[in-house]
Amino acid sequence: MAEIVSLSDGIAAVVHDGDTLVMEGFTHLIPFAAGHEIIRQGRRDLTLVRMTPDLIYDQLIGMGCASKLIFSWGGNPGVGSLHRFRDAVENAWPLPIDLEEHSHAGMANRYLAGASGLPFAVLRGYVGTDLVAQTDTIRSITCPFTGEVLTAVPALSPDVTIIHAQRADRKGNVQMWGILGVQKEAVLAAKRSLITVEEIVDSLDPQPQEVVLPSFATTYVAVAPGGAHPSYAQGYSLRDNAFYTEWDAISKDRDTFLRWMDENVMRRAPAA
């Protein structure tokens, strides 16, 4: 059964130096409050996994928390570059970062295999692209029934997955709705999990197209109201598109970035 803990206790319990860490959320429900707490706790040498690194991994990379990134699209959606990610790849600042690069279809199938307890997934993908030569975790496999050659990618089985959701009940059952990306698969693929939620309620009234993660399938739940900002939590908040645009200028320059992180993350206490 999931234990309900504070955000700082939850992060301390699940994220350790050297871990392979997944924080998913496809534009919606990105766990920013949890990411900020990881930065405050000073974790190092993380292998960060995420389909769309977004601002949250730009911040973790820029603060020196990561040594490797497994991903499929590293931009600021609708705005442009992730400057901290680019600075790490192009100039090894603040640290060199190793890349393991996939497509969305490949990453989604890697989570699916992890959640299913399988060693790999099969898809039609990557054929003819230069990704095959650069990424060792893209191989081919022959169908034992038809002889067709397909692509295989290994399962993702991270040490820990962290997601943000709308709410949980007092037993730790988690309810989420709206665009849910690959979060369910990412949680089920992980050894440990932490789900931050907008609120804890007595009962989970049904919502359209909801997904419920039963308490027995997760490790910790922590309350973090507004914990998806500047992304959003459908039913609770709107995406702060202005901040995504402002991030371009904040993150372009190393000193401006460090000053912003100091003022807005390092000096802020985590949610209770």
């Binding site: 959606p77 609708g78 709206g178 698969e185 709107l238 995406r239 645009t245």
Partner: peptide, 19 residues
């Protein structure tokens, strides 16, 4: 602004997972 803005989910015929 992004391909995951709320307006896309709110107006969709169906919202499915990425896999």
């Amino acid at each position: 602004l992004s391909i995951g803005d709320g307006i896309l989910a709110e107006t969709a015929d169906a919202v499915v997972s990425v896999p």
